[in-house]
């Protein structure tokens, strides 16, 4: 870990302004991802701006009947919130499928959205990685890529966005609210928040330098039945090989997003339109896939996991 300086911001706008005053400044929220990466010098911020204590830790109703989730609301609090459990079950299920109780107590809504990939070559500073060190090459291509992406990836990077919460947010059409260093605010649809890697896998989101997430906005409840099925090699404390977030209505129509296969939570209009036909929806979701030998199975796994979710929606046998 490199030595760094530290400050506590006084307000969200001040935090954003502070972030461009010093080169290499970063926000720190729960620290559960950032500190780990600093210890192994994958992240080397010169300055940390602590955004805890800015009053961004509450969940409030919005005028149109949705929810506004402060960026510093912990994953534990968000998943346990009565309104979330009642109206946005997919979100609770996705969050509790991730990490561990201890981590979820510390991890925040904003930090979770920005957690970095779990590609093992990204974590090992001896190895080439275009995301960690632009231009150094991609260690995973031709190496061990079983966990990595099959759609939306590029020849520069095949990593995934690894998180669970955002997959639910994608199916819910959430929006991310931010403040920029100049004090202006904007909202970014979740579908536009994470970027595809293209030639610049080190640029991961739509955020500009110094831009601070202040909240995540949920639209009014969708109704329907909510599912999050996360498939992994062990039953807890592992990232998804494939995960399916779905909201399915009485008539079998609905929405589906997939985690663990792409640089972002993967949602395709044609897949939603194809529901309740699991095979057709899965075909749409994995169209144009460029898997490696290691992760080709994810194509079939997407279809099978989705079929399982839809069977459960029809009342055919529980998931666990």
């Amino acid at each position: 870990m490199r030595p760094f300086t530290y400050e506590r911001a006084g307000s969200p706008a001040e935090a954003a302004a502070a972030a461009i005053r010093m080169q290499g400044a970063r926000f720190i929220a729960g620290g559960t991802n950032l500190i780990d990466l600093m210890k192994i010098e994958v992240e080397t911020p010169a300055h940390l701006i602590d955004v805890n204590g800015l009053g961004l830790d509450s969940i409030e109703g919005t005028q149109d009947g949705g929810l506004r989730i402060g960026a510093l609301v912990s994953n534990a609090d968000l998943s346990a919130d009565k309104r979330v459990r009642r109206d946005y079950g997919v979100l609770t299920r996705a969050i509790v499928a991730g990490a561990s109780g201890q981590l979820r107590n510390k991890a925040t809504t904003g930090g979770n959205l920005l957690q970095r990939t779990r590609c093992p070559y990204f974590y090992d500073t001896n190895q080439p990685c275009n995301k960690r060190k632009p231009g150094s090459g991609c260690g995973a291509i031709g190496g061990f890529s079983r966990q990595l992406g099959i759609v939306g990836v590029s020849d520069k990077c095949i990593a995934t966005y690894p998180g669970d919460m955002a997959v639910a947010l994608r199916v819910l059409d959430a929006k991310v609210e931010t403040v920029k260093p100049d004090g202006t605010t904007r909202t970014i649809p979740i579908g536009e928040f994470h970027r595809l890697w293209g030639d610049t896998p080190h640029i991961e989101t739509a955020l500009e330098t110094g831009e601070l997430i202040t909240a995540v906005i949920l639209p009014p409840p969708l109704g329907g039945r909510h599912f999050y099925h996360k498939v992994r090699d062990r039953r807890s404390y592992a990232f998804a090989l494939v995960s399916i977030a779905a909201v399915i209505q009485q008539d079998g129509s609905g929405r589906v997003a997939v985690g663990g296969i792409a640089p972002k939570p993967w949602r395709v209009p044609a897949a939603d339109a194809a529901l309740p036909d699991a095979a057709a929806a899965a075909r749409a979701l994995t169209a144009g896939a460029t898997p490696t030998e290691d992760n080709r199975f994810k194509i079939a796994l997407v279809e099978r996991t989705l079929a399982g979710v839809l069977a459960e929606a029809r009342g055919e046998g529980a998931t666990s």
Binding site: R118, P120, Y121, Y123, D124, Q127, G139, G142, G143, F144, D233, R234, R235, S236, Y237, A238, F239
Partner: peptide, 20 residues
């Protein structure tokens, strides 16, 4: 290619958890 065990931490080298 490079001759090493890639999943060299307890996140990558999975052992059973209680739930298993």
């Amino acid at each position: 290619r490079f001759g090493f065990f890639v999943n060299h931490d307890l996140a990558g080298y999975e052992v059973p958890v209680h739930a298993d």
